[in-house]
Amino acid sequence: MSVTRDQIVQWLENLAAVLSENKEYLTQLDSAIGDADHGINMTRGFNKVMEKLPGVADKDIGNILKTTGMTLISSVGGASGPLYGTFFMRSGMAVGAKETLNREDLYELLKAGVDGIVQRGRPVLADKTMYDAWAPALEALRSALDAGMETLPALSQAVAAAETGMKNTIPLQARKGRASYLGERSIGHQDPGATSSYLMLKSLLDTLQPA
């Protein structure tokens, strides 16, 4: 199957709703090891994206994603603003003027976005960051595509890997961001950024999956 522009717009709309539903949950995760604003900031950012989206919904996918990125960069703040903003800017640049995406395009979209996160935040695996959800997800997606799987089952493996990666942040001691100052006290808490990243990928799958 190929992913259409309308499905990308639908994904962003669904994601805004999912983040809003999880606002308290993300903020609560953040208050354990951060500064209790992740859900508040992400919701504010995606509400802004929802305001901008109608103006670009008939443009190419690259344009839609880049607009999303610029909006997040200028409205979220914190570390997640530039990180998720860069994710969407880079994914937008990677897909460019396309109006539909095949499964390799979809991989490129996510890969370019995650590369942007790495360049901006310089995380390594097991730092207890959003990268701990993204890295295994991308790897799972790559292997699934290499094994000849179709978009949906491949993406579903990526979501499962992201979920495992997210849960695997619980026993980790944070080495990046505000949580790192807690030292051993950061152990035992799930990383809020890895959680919102998982929700992002999960909501992409839910959007593409026939109800």
């Binding site: 960069i73 200028s74 409205s75 703040g77």
Partner: peptide, 11 residues
């Protein structure tokens, strides 16, 4: 100035 305890944005 950003939001309370939240960094300002690049713009």
């Amino acid at each position: 100035p950003g939001e309370v305890f939240t960094s300002p944005t690049p713009d």
